[in-house]
Amino acid sequence: MGRYIARRLLQAIPMLFMISVVLFALVNIAPGGPLSGHGRSRRIRPEKAEILKRQFGLDKPLPIQYVIWLVGNDWMRVDADGDGVTESYGERRGILRGDFGFSYRNRQPVLEEIADRLPNTIYLMGVTLIVVGIIAIPLGAISAVRQYSVFDIVVTTLSFMGQAIPEFWLGLILILIFYAWLNNPFTGAPLLPSGGMQTFGMGFAIWDRIQHLILPVTMGMVGWVAWYSRFLRSGMLDVLHQDYVRTARAKGLSEHLVVYRHALKNAVIPLVTIFALDLPSIFAGSLYVELLFSWPGMGRLYYQAATGRDYPMLMAILIIGAGFMITANLLADIAYAYLDPRIRYD
């Protein structure tokens, strides 16, 4: 097992390298860039553009830019003041040494910006995933146990519907219903807030936090619940027809024990894998939810960087995201091996 993990980790390095080259090329190949005028006046003077270009190191060929991004430029002479003369050593340390550079947009360190947003995303996505688990597992399990019952039919139908609703559309409807149309009968205020993480100026209040979570979590979880519960239902059906479950029944164990002790445990194993694969969304967040509910998370940070051609920010989020994905893949395999004793790795 240890050797297996080590091997997988070793494989991850060239893979990340490959991904980073591709992404770097993609990000930089597009027309437009950080030097385009921002906003309404749209003008940037040519002299100024030249200076900025040298300061950002955009005057160098792409492969060199990539190397600088990767390992920094503190070993080479650069043109810090943009006057065309290389006079001092650079200050970039490169991502390999944890320096993701500065955002072109607001000149803040990229990692600081990410550190500002990441907790918000983890908070929202964490709650969402927990709620998904709490809802989807019983739904899937019960509908499998009572296959073809009314409950099963309703759950299955709902899960098909849940997968067919465009996410942003659901969010708009939720805002309309619970913010615009329904009021709290005691206060006359909207039943649920339209967005944000908490009421401004209220300090930390659990109820307030929960109120702000209900709609975004609902919007984010519907697709997931639908997919997880369907997945678990079919897994559970498979397990329920396995020989060992029959044996357990034949031994005279109570149906309850058979289902929840033996069957559910085994049916959840593949779900754990899927779950591990979905974990990176804790990092990337759900863009649609964040946009509609004004949630200051990673998805919006990325979107803003993509529309504004903020290369350092784009690259940082993409590469960290890819790192998360690879880790999650590995975790999924390990979890699978750990939970399912039939699987052996050499």
Binding site: A30, P31, G32, G33, L35, S36, G37, R42, I44, P46, A49, K53, T307, G308, R309
Partner: peptide, 10 residues
């Protein structure tokens, strides 16, 4: 950002 970008940025 594309329409009004400088000459070299496309």
């Amino acid at each position: 950002t594309i329409l009004w970008a400088d000459y070299e940025s496309g």
